[in-house]
Design a protein around this nucleic acid. Sequence first.
DNA 1: ATCACCCCTATTATTGACAATAACCATGGC
DNA 2: GCCATGGTTATTGTCAATAATAGGGGTGAT
Lengths: 230, 230
Amino acid sequence: MKAEPTLPELQAPSREEEQAEVIRRLEEDIIFGRLAPGLRLVEDTLMQRYGASRHFVRQALFQLERQGIVLREKNVGATVRFYSAEEVRQIYEVREMLTRQAALMIALPAPDSLIDELNELQRHYCIKADAQDMRGIHETNDAFHLALFSACGNPYLVRSLQDYMNLTLPMRAKNLADSEGLALSRRQHELMIELLKGRDSWALAQLCVDHMQYSKADYLVRISNDKKPQ
Amino acid sequence: MKAEPTLPELQAPSREEEQAEVIRRLEEDIIFGRLAPGLRLVEDTLMQRYGASRHFVRQALFQLERQGIVLREKNVGATVRFYSAEEVRQIYEVREMLTRQAALMIALPAPDSLIDELNELQRHYCIKADAQDMRGIHETNDAFHLALFSACGNPYLVRSLQDYMNLTLPMRAKNLADSEGLALSRRQHELMIELLKGRDSWALAQLCVDHMQYSKADYLVRISNDKKPQ
DNA sequence: ATCACCCCTATTATTGACAATAACCATGGC
DNA sequence: GCCATGGTTATTGTCAATAATAGGGGTGAT
């Protein structure tokens, strides 16, 4: 008899989930501003903070560098990445373009199955919003948009869209906490579902683009204020 | 006196370049078909083949997985990825969309500096083409398109475009060897430069999209033939 | 006083040994 | 004869010790 397999699903963190958890927590700490832009992310410190081995922390930093929210310099280390107003505008320009294209590709009127799915996701979103559960809000919100855009039929377009959603996470995060932005977002989601029942693709596309203006504008104001007082 | 620093630039592979070299060689072996789709990429084998440590091979596989030309399965290993006709069509749909948008954003007529730069790159391209230097052809070709699209002014759009250029590498590679495709490609490059001197953005955008049809069509025919005889 | 240089420390990069895992094969029970 | 079961091997995943590197502070020369 060997050392027994320790009962798989009881409480085993199972390595790969441990890795995912480190990534999630680090990502969360960055996008919610607990780790400010420019701050150095020293591997040893993060190892302590998350109780993970160097290997996992390293992988997480690579992954988040790829996602664009961490900057790594050879033999120097990682820092929380900061985006200038100019860069933000450029990033959103591409995101808006992809969004518009994807929206236009959704066949209208949408099938009931999609409507039902989105209503269900929207319900979850509202629950998390009411509970002020930041991570939950962010996850359900992204799930909603992902389900919506998946209806465009091109998984590669969806993947690119997702890349840009991840890239803009730091800009969108503040709004997930802001009750005004939250209420607006909620109404827009419901309007999207209504438009899916109709035939006006252009209206839908425009709404999807409008949907991201609030957080973009808010972020731009925020960073211009951060610069000035200094 | 310590063990001397071995004269930095004499013949030092300098680790980071060694890493890049492994990636390049592996990529090359895949896109030029020396490693067929579906083939298992065993780490130990690659370590031997490229004389690199496990770490570097690993990194290379991660990188190429991200690029989309390698498929990795947990605890199973990596294989050369294969794309179905349907996937190829979807990938090209997005690539064409991004290309068209980028082309339309280039301000016409283009400044002389850009024209000069492209002429120079085109000259290199022709040299490599005449020399039948596959890697050289591919590198100079991509450099040409990168310089062209960079003129759109949005580096993020260029980055996404580059992602799709990398993703379609296996489909484009065959054409880099094909003398007919090569000649067509050459003429189209020159036509692009001519259009940059004019004011017709739509003609330029259309030409850029047309430019990628030959290799796409060729690849689709190729894989449908591969399927049949079996 | 200033500049250049060197050592020292903080940090990341690399490596090879080792653990975990999954596929494979053979063997025995039914 | 066939399915289940256990062992074996091939392969990837993890780790912790070691090497390399860059930056900072102090020391000495000019």
